[in-house]
Computed example of a mutant assay.
Amino acid sequence: MEQLLNHLRHLGFTELEAKVMVSLTQQGTQSGYEVAKRLGVSRSNVYATLQRLVSRGVIQLTPGEPARYTMMPIKEFTQMISGQMGESLTYLEQHMPSETHEQPSFFIVEGERKVIETLNRELDKASEEIVAGIWREEAKWSRQGLERAEQRGVRVLWSFEGDEDGKFSGMLPLTASQQGGRKFWLVVDRRWCIVGMRGDELPAQAIVTEHPLMVELLLQHFAQEIILFELENDLGAELIQRYGEGYEHILNKYMPSFVHKDID
């Protein structure tokens, strides 16, 4: 019964209207007094409700002493509601003001549960490509979502620290530092991205946006990872000899404080 009442409420009927309609359907034609007695509601409230339903064409009134009320056949009722909703939706499509195209916003998501929900919701919407960088500790958040995406034919490329099974295609080594927490980021279909951090004693926090600049920065970062991965595979010893471990000779030239903080 409660589920039936709930669906009637979703169609725009009040709690009492829904109960009156169900009562008339179950018991057949009744007077307002009989409906009020059966529902245990004041007669004034029931009569006002019956009048509204009559005006909407949902129930039929048979004049007399007392007046009698009958619920319209359920098939006719559903056809009427369906037609009314269809007309309203068509009107909205034709007459709603044009959408304003605002600059994409940045949203903060806090807490592991909310981050996971946000992340997996977008992964399930992915249709073309997912590019990501995740540490092994956080990979469990998105592992199933990424697997489902690959099964749908979505191209998945991600940097993944500490993979042991080599299960996914497109894996690349993650070179970011863990200092201050483990960073994670994902770009879905080159339109949506999430960037965040989490540590063993640091609550998960993330920025979510569809801003094209942030998407571009993350994809550029990933492209640099790919290039470095290929170069280090082919020319590793030569690169170390020429540029130092972790390219420290280059970084010392431009960002010495960065080298001392993150590499040494």
Rank of each mutant, 00 (worst) to 15 (best):
Q27W: 13
S105Y: 04
L231N: 10
R242Y: 07
L218T: 11
K253V: 04
E137H: 08
F222M: 03
S23W: 02
L174Y: 12
E216C: 02
M80D: 11
G236N: 05
R113Q: 15
S55L: 07
P173C: 05
L123D: 01
R152L: 04
I108P: 01
A126T: 08
E210C: 06
D189H: 02
W185N: 11
D200C: 00
M197G: 03
H211K: 01
V156C: 08
E150M: 15
Y91Q: 13
D189R: 02
L231R: 15
T100M: 06
V46K: 06
S23G: 00
E164D: 11
E99G: 05
E164N: 00
L239N: 01
L16E: 08
L186K: 05
A132K: 01
L146P: 05
E147Y: 11
L146T: 02
L239G: 02
E230K: 15
L123S: 04
S105G: 00
Y47I: 13
F168S: 03
T90Q: 15
G133T: 03
L239C: 04
E122N: 11
H7E: 12
A206Y: 09
I116N: 04
R68P: 00
S142M: 15
I194V: 08
E147C: 03
V54E: 13
G244T: 01
P63N: 11
M21K: 06
P256E: 07
L218C: 04
E147S: 09
E147D: 02
P256N: 07
G145W: 03
P97L: 08
M171A: 03
G86K: 09
E210Y: 00
A48N: 13
F77E: 10
